[in-house]
Amino acid sequence: MTTRRDFIVKGCTACMGLVGLGMLLEGCSTALPVFNAVANNKSFVVPLAKFTEQNTNLLLLRNPQLENDILLVKENNSYKALLMKCTHEGYGLVVAKNKIHCNVHGSEFDMNGNVLKSPATRALQQFKTEVINSNIIIHLT
């Protein structure tokens, strides 16, 4: 018979295990930088310096007016802006090292937004970007 004490002990052990695993993984990874962007006439402005400051090729853009984040991908000196919304059923996507995943139904996308694995069939929505002075402008329309 499982006693209340057994249940609490097992539950706490499992929780500590999960927390420990999380800390272990955190220790060997680099965080994906998030930039809280301000909308300016249906476009976002991101300073180019954000990439060098963070020493990264990936930047997540977040704004309360957006349903999902936008992933800004730097490739040489060009920038892609991908909406982190699965084209299958609209769930938010998560970014791993070299792929973008939908946790819910398993769709996968590459860093250009192309589908690697169904059930999604369409590439991620991409926004036009341009570099003006030392800023990247992301046009939402």
């Binding site: 999960l18 999380g22 993984l25 955190e26 990874s29 680099t30 965080a31 994906l32 998030v34 998560v94 970014v95 791993a96 090292k97 995943h101 946790n103």
Partner: peptide, 13 residues
């Protein structure tokens, strides 16, 4: 509740 760990890209819970 579904979450992802910001400091570890790819880690979700």
């Amino acid at each position: 509740y579904y979450g992802s760990v910001a400091r570890v890209p790819g880690l979700n819970y």
